[in-house]
Design a protein around this nucleic acid. Structure first.
Lengths: 110, 110
DNA sequence: TTGACATATAAATGAATATTGATATAATAA
DNA sequence: TTATTATATCAATATTCATTTATATGTCAA
């Protein structure tokens, strides 16, 4: 079986994974999975300094893993489903391809 | 709804994502998804210098995304399904939690 | 044993990143 | 207007990471 040309380029995926390569940012995604939060809520929950949190949020924003909505002086951050789904999809494809080829790899099966 | 305590700690996930935060390493995983490969095959496919490739493989090994099998002077690298599945699972949980809470977020629905 | 080959490790360097502290902006309240 | 609050950015430093070159290890063949 030939591997199909992947929908997401490895470079793009790596970029998104780099944004996930930090404990606080994974935490942020997990919190935002529960719904939109303003920066101050995130700061309170995570116990990060405000500039540091702001920096992490920017990193996540830049690769499209979260989105912002401004409301007065509050910034409300929310999960960007598509972005997360893209990373998820890359791993999904790897697992599926792997499962498919290991099935094939066992002679006599199927 | 309350978020369940995640099965994989954010720190561990971040560590694995860090290993994925490189174009070559994502490529390696994609190749290995098709089955075991020896280092020289990977080197030929990816066009990386031998020491650089070796370094990337070590990074992937250290976080449990690939495994090695020695055979004479050849090292055969293979995908470590569990490791990949763990990363996949973290994103999966985020997406599921998100979907669940956005459904709840729409009043009148369900 | 010698040599060739496959792979790993070490050291060095430059680039990218995290973190902090200080400051800026922008919106609201007094 | 001035003060206050929420957030972002900037500059500086420390740390981590990718890459290269050189060298080491281990295995096989002659």
């Amino acid at each position: 079986m030939k591997a199909a040309t992947p929908a997401v380029k490895s470079g793009d995926a790596a970029l998104a994974f780099r944004a996930l390569a930090d404990t606080s940012r994974v935490e942020i995604l997990r919190i935002l999975a529960g719904g939109e939060r303003c920066v101050c809520e995130l700061a309170a929950t995570l116990g990060l300094s405000q500039p540091l949190l702001s920096h992490h949020l920017r990193t996540l924003r830049e690769v499209g893993l979260v989105r912002v909505r401004k409301e007065g002086r509050w910034m409300h951050y929310a999960l960007a489903r598509e972005g997360v789904a893209e990373c998820h999809g890359v791993l999904d494809a790897v697992l599926e391809h792997h499962d498919a080829s290991t099935r094939l790899g066992r002679p006599g099966c199927c």
